[in-house]
């Protein structure tokens, strides 16, 4: 499928359809999970009462932002090794969406934690390695975006971005380990949401009990919905970039003629 889509023309054809479809289904799924999460499921008093409803945005975006960073690095790798232009277009498009989802994850986590551990939310940020890791991830995305923006030409931006994303990805596990170690000197239990290779689903249920299946269901709907929404946004940015490249090419050709 990927080699099929690697051709920009076919990608444009595919994404023309994929964008509205992903948008529609994604919105439905997010709406459904939010409706259930905010209105239907009972609040979990041990988890902060009504504030825990932020979880239905927080957890899907936490899963997504790690995946988006891995996707950014994977696209960078494909571009670096095979010089597939579309891979770079994808990497460029993933970055702002990933940064957005890390920010969303951080903010919803902070809202949830406001009551969650009963300590005011500045304490939560200082005390929760999961949120801190997400914050570091946010800065990795930010650095990537800033670096690309500073480069002169598209080719240079592509290469510099690819190097940074790949170096960043292999650093993520180390950052994770270090932030976990840092946390053992402060408060809170070991983190789990973006632990590499860990099983994230059960992690939100504290004290080792299985999560309320109704919660888990909403989380999965939310994850699917946000995944589709992110895809739609990424496809849109990719389409915009391809159009912009085409217009640059026309401009360059015009310059040639005159």
């Amino acid at each position: 499928m990927w080699s099929f889509l690697a051709n920009p023309h076919r990608f444009m054809g595919f994404s023309r359809l994929a964008v509205p479809i992903c948008f529609a289904i994604g919105a439905l799924l997010i709406g459904w999970s939010l409706y259930n999460g905010l209105m239907v499921v009972p609040p979990d008093e041990a988890q902060g009462g009504d504030l825990m409803r932020a979880m239905f945005t927080h957890v899907p975006s936490a899963w997504l932002c790690m995946g988006l960073y891995a996707g950014l690095a994977a696209a960078s790798f494909v571009w670096f090794v095979w010089r597939h232009e579309l891979a770079d277009v994808a990497a460029r498009a993933i970055a702002p969406i990933g940064a957005g989802y890390t920010a969303l994850c951080f903010v919803t986590g902070a809202i949830w934690g406001q009551k969650g551990w009963g300590q005011g939310w500045h304490n939560l940020i200082l005390g929760d390695s999961r949120l801190m890791s997400v914050l570091v991830l946010f800065f990795l995305f930010l650095g990537y975006i800033a670096l690309r923006a500073a480069m002169e030409t598209r080719q240079k931006a592509a290469k510099a971005g690819a190097i940074l994303a790949m170096v960043g990805l292999i650093n993520v596990p180390i950052i994770k380990v270090s932030v976990d170690l840092w946390e053992t000197t402060t408060i809170h239990q070991p983190s789990s949401v973006i632990r590499i290779g860990g099983a994230p689903e059960g992690a939100e249920a504290e004290e080792g009990q299985g999560m309320n299946p109704m919660y888990l269901q909403q989380l999965l709907w939310g994850f699917g919905g946000h995944g589709l929404l992110a895809s739609a946004l990424i496809f849109m940015l990719m389409r915009a970039e391809i159009y912009s490249q085409r217009s640059d090419r026309l401009l360059a050709a015009r310059l040639e003629e005159s």
Partner: peptide, 16 residues
């Protein structure tokens, strides 16, 4: 901006 996230592990381990 690029380098700061990469400084995190060394700072944490170093403070330990």
């Amino acid at each position: 901006v690029i380098a700061l996230p990469f400084y995190v592990p060394a700072i944490i381990f170093g403070v330990r």
